[in-house]
């Protein structure tokens, strides 16, 4: 059943760009990239148990490193990308070692400070980053293995593959020993320590994996938007990722992806002006947190439960129950 659903979904995603126009393909690619970013935040939220307001900085560091290597030093995308990923993971490890011992609000604030430092450095290091104006004209990745990525459609497939590989890799991860150690540390640090789990090491690993996935999103972001500027990496970029992960459902892999789809397409369908989008994000965040802390996935579970119970009961009653829930 589940295999069938995944197969159908894969077929639809592969067929989509052939049936849709350029704009819809663009929108779908945007969704994929947001999904990768939301996934990275969902990992930190759900498996390290921290709100990381520095996530956008990880995206920025990776995106900029890759773009600068390519534009200034003429390095091939496929060589620059692993270097950029290695850079962002090392920075995450360093930052994590320093900050993850801090609890609750202190971690959140210091990561926010880290994000601000990163953004300010990007904005002010004119010689390398071109300052507030940003890096322009970022080209699609160079062809590799006979595949080129210079059309919207081919870039869509690149993003699709990256997301699919991320999902698969993270799915294995949360089922692995490391995944269980992360859950244990999230649930109870003290107890974890006493059953022999090195708490700090696992938290740092969690943050590094989150940074790696965020970096993957960043790698795609540059060529996708063709421009990188510090204004794209404010606090709000991190909060957008949080909203997606929370709206979809924290602690799952599908949740952030759902959240990304929801938050890209709902404003699109309601043809909101850009003004109303942040307000909607804010309202959603509050409502979901207060009313449905498990997000869309939680709501789906509730609905399924209601349906299952509804079938065994007279119609009218199930209707009332539905309204009451």
């Amino acid at each position: 059943m589940r295999e069938l659903a995944i197969a159908v979904l894969a077929a639809v995603m592969i067929a989509a760009p052939f049936m849709l126009g350029d704009y819809q393909t663009y929108l779908l690619t945007l969704t994929l990239i947001w999904a990768i970013l939301a996934l990275s935040m969902g990992l930190v939220l759900g498996f390290v148990g921290q709100i990381n307001l520095g996530q956008a900085a990880f995206v920025a560091i990776c995106a900029y490193t890759c773009a600068i290597l390519r534009q200034r030093y003429g390095v091939d995308f496929w060589l620059a990308a692993p270097v950029a990923l290695a850079a962002v993971v090392s920075i995450a490890a360093l930052v994590g070692l320093l900050t993850l011992r801090l609890k609750g609000p202190f971690f959140i604030l210091v990561m926010l400070a880290f994000a601000e430092i990163t953004r300010l450095v990007i904005a002010n290091w004119q010689d390398v980053t071109n300052g507030p104006l940003g890096l322009k004209g970022i080209m699609p990745p160079e062809p590799i293995l006979g595949l080129s990525f210079d059309t919207k459609r081919s870039f869509y497939f690149l993003a699709l593959v990256v997301l699919a590989v991320c999902l698969l890799a993270l799915w294995r991860l949360i089922r692995s020993r490391t995944g269980r150690m992360l859950v244990a540390v999230r649930e109870d640090e003290l107890l974890s320590e006493f059953i022999g789990i090195p708490v700090m090491r696992n938290k740092v690993i969690g943050l590094c994996i989150g940074a790696f996935v965020a970096g993957l999103g960043g790698l795609l972001l540059g060529p996708f938007l063709t421009i990188l500027a510090p204004s794209q990496f404010t606090l709000f970029a991190s909060v957008d990722m949080i909203v997606m992960a929370v709206v979809g459902g924290v602690g799952t892999l599908v949740g952030p992806v759902l959240g990304a789809i929801f938050l890209v397409y709902v404003p699109e369908f309601l043809s909101f002006t850009s003004h109303y989008r942040p307000a909607m994000m804010g309202a959603l965040l509050i409502i979901v947190t207060l009313v449905a802390p498990r997000g869309l996935l939680g709501l789906a579970d509730v609905a399924r439960g209601l349906l299952a119970r509804g079938f065994g009961k007279p119609r009218r009653e199930s209707g009332e129950r539905g309204r009451a829930g």
């Binding site: 939220l45 148990g49 709100i51 609750g104 609000p105 959140i108 709000f236 909060v239 949080i242 909203v243 929370v246 003004h275 109303y276 942040p278 307000a279 994000m281 804010g282 309202a283 959603l284 965040l285 509050i286 947190t289 207060l290 802390p293």
Partner: peptide, 25 residues
């Protein structure tokens, strides 16, 4: 709980968005 603490922060982040957009409107 840590979870409760995170929820409070999420809500105030939501308020941040709404209040700023309200002012712009």
């Amino acid at each position: 709980s840590l979870h409760g603490e995170l929820q409070v922060i999420l809500v105030t982040l939501g308020l941040l968005y709404i209040l700023r957009e309200a002012a712009i409107i």
